[in-house]
């Protein structure tokens, strides 16, 4: 088949720019092809806006596939809805009992304390504070990671795309039902102002980035370690404890409290919760900046480490 440039390609003619690669080795020239052009670079003439739109749709599709994949496991979804509700209710009661005896403990009244507990549980599941949820270790172990490298997309972004889908499913199927039951059973507090609500919504997005950034770094360590579960377990514990999900960070005594407030883990649970309850010390902007800084640092660290992980894989292969 000799490329015929005079002959306009059928559909999408305006998008095609590249001629077919030369003649074929096999003497099959007689078979005129209905496909005179290739797709490579076919978006070259799309404007910047069009490209951004295409890109947004692509990431939407990736996240949505990730979400649909999770929703296929009906029994798992059902089981986690129930278990989340049960855990939320139990923890809520525990908080009520404690605050009934000592109202005003840690600066919270009992409504705030229960709100903290119920909301905390929701944030823990949505942001997977219990660790994991990123497939990399398994894929490294089974060699499926090679498939990821053949894809024309950045590695970290790909997993972030999947994570967004997962978080959406967890938010809808775990956090929301438990939250609704919490509202029905307990006296919960709503954000005081529209501004607080907006700041909370923003902080959710940043919390997702921080949580992903942390777990991604942990997951990447699978490139270097054969037995990954130890790292995973340690990191999950640390993350859980310092996120403020078990106990508000303000209850941490002395130096432990100071350190805990600076670590990134608080940005996942404690900061969104403070913004929701309106208990931020230095105003919402500062809190959001704290989250954004950590998100940036972690994602950049992730990018650097990704490059090294891939280089390691490519150069040493295991």
């Amino acid at each position: 088949m000799i490329p015929d440039r005079a002959n306009p390609p059928p559909a999408q003619a305006n998008l095609a720019t590249l001629p077919a690669p030369a003649e074929l080795a096999a003497a099959a020239a007689a078979d005129a092809s209905p496909r005179p052009t290739r797709l490579v670079g076919s978006l070259g003439r799309l404007g910047r806006l069009g490209r951004a739109w295409e890109s947004a749709r692509m990431w939407g599709a990736i996240s949505s596939a990730s979400a649909r994949r999770m929703l296929r496991y009906r029994a798992a979804v059902l089981a986690s809805i129930v278990s989340n509700i049960v855990l939320t209710v139990l923890r809520g009661h525990l908080a009520l009992a404690v605050w009934a005896q000592r109202p005003g403990l840690a600066g919270y009244d009992s409504t705030a304390a229960v709100t903290f507990t119920v909301l905390g549980q929701s944030l823990v599941t949505t942001f997977a504070v219990f660790g994991g949820m990123i497939d990399i270790p398994w894929r490294v172990r089974t060699g499926s990671i090679e498939v990821d490298l053949v894809r024309p997309l950045g590695f970290q972004r790909w997993y972030l795309g999947l994570e967004v889908g997962r978080a959406a499913v967890y938010l809808a199927s775990r956090a929301l039902p438990a939250g609704i039951v919490g509202v029905l059973l307990f006296d919960l507090r709503l954000p005081r102002t529209a501004g607080a609500a907006a700041a909370f919504a923003m902080s959710l997005g940043l919390a997702l980035l921080v949580s992903f950034g942390l777990r991604y770094l942990v997951a990447l360590s699978a490139f270097w370690m054969t037995d990954f579960r130890g790292v995973q377990a340690v990191s999950a514990l640390v993350m859980m404890f310092f996120s403020g999900a078990i106990l508000p960070l303000v209850l941490f005594p002395g130096a432990l409290g100071t350190v805990a407030a600076l670590l990134p883990f608080g940005a996942v649970v404690q900061t969104p919760m403070d913004l929701y309850l309106g208990t931020v010390d230095d105003g919402p902007v500062r809190a959001l900046a704290f989250q954004a800084t950590w998100a940036l640092v972690l994602l950049l660290a992730g990018q650097t480490l990704t490059a090294r992980a891939i280089r390691r894989l490519v150069v040493q292969n295991g």
Partner: peptide, 10 residues
């Protein structure tokens, strides 16, 4: 299709 940006008709 989305990842490789294949035009829908194609």
């Amino acid at each position: 299709q989305r990842i490789y940006r294949i035009p829908p008709a194609r």
